[in-house]
């Protein structure tokens, strides 16, 4: 696989190289956005915007030691923030998206219970500050280590470690507030 730095430089002039970067990151960016907004329709829309924006700005992108993914996550983070600011678009998580999360081997009543638990937990997570949501999504959904998360959001490994602890405390408080803990 071509080194990322070379691929990025090539992507500034070559559409095929940008296509390769897209293939490398589309799943991760989509996953992150999905858990931030809670439904596929908006995740598709926002993920597309992330890559169109990246394409439009890649010529000005400068490598400063942070991974390319950090730049994409930052674009995604800003677009998700704008999305949430747009009150008109705020809505409940569609049921079909929750059903997709439930474990397939469970029976109907178990599925209902699991869906409810997933809904409660994920909604509580979305009430946390953006950075804390990012930490748990990257940790549990992407399976990244504290060091990898630190590189992506520009913090030290130790900072992520303690932020993770504080995030769990905040999440628990949010669940208690909602009567779900």
């Amino acid at each position: 696989m071509e080194a990322e730095e070379q691929l990025i430089e090539r992507a500034k002039r070559d559409a095929t190289a940008f296509g390769e970067l897209y293939e490398r990151y589309v799943d991760r960016i989509y996953n992150y956005i999905y858990y931030r907004v809670g439904n596929h329709a908006d995740a598709e829309d926002l993920a597309a915007r992330v890559f169109y924006r990246a394409l439009g700005n890649i010529a000005r992108y400068k490598q400063r030691g942070a991974p390319f993914a950090a730049w994409l996550y930052r674009i995604a983070h800003n677009l998700v923030a704008n999305f949430h600011r747009d009150a008109a678009r705020r809505r409940e998580v569609p049921l079909d998206d929750i059903v997709a999360v439930a474990e397939k081997r469970a029976g109907p009543s178990q599925i209902a219970e699991q869906n409810e638990d997933a809904r409660v937990v994920l909604e509580a997570m979305r009430a946390l500050p953006a950075e804390r949501q990012q930490i748990v999504i990257l940790k549990f959904s992407e399976g990244l280590s504290n060091a990898e998360i630190g590189k992506l959001i520009g913090r030290s490994e130790g900072a992520i470690k303690s932020l993770y602890h504080r995030t769990l405390i905040a999440l628990r408080a949010e669940l208690v507030k909602r009567g779900a803990e």
Binding site: D27, V101, D117, F140, S141
Partner: peptide, 18 residues
Amino acid sequence: ALMKLAARMKRWLIPVRP
């Protein structure tokens, strides 16, 4: 309580792909 909560998060934050 925090460990149980972490396990719940892990359980529901399954990777979602487009």
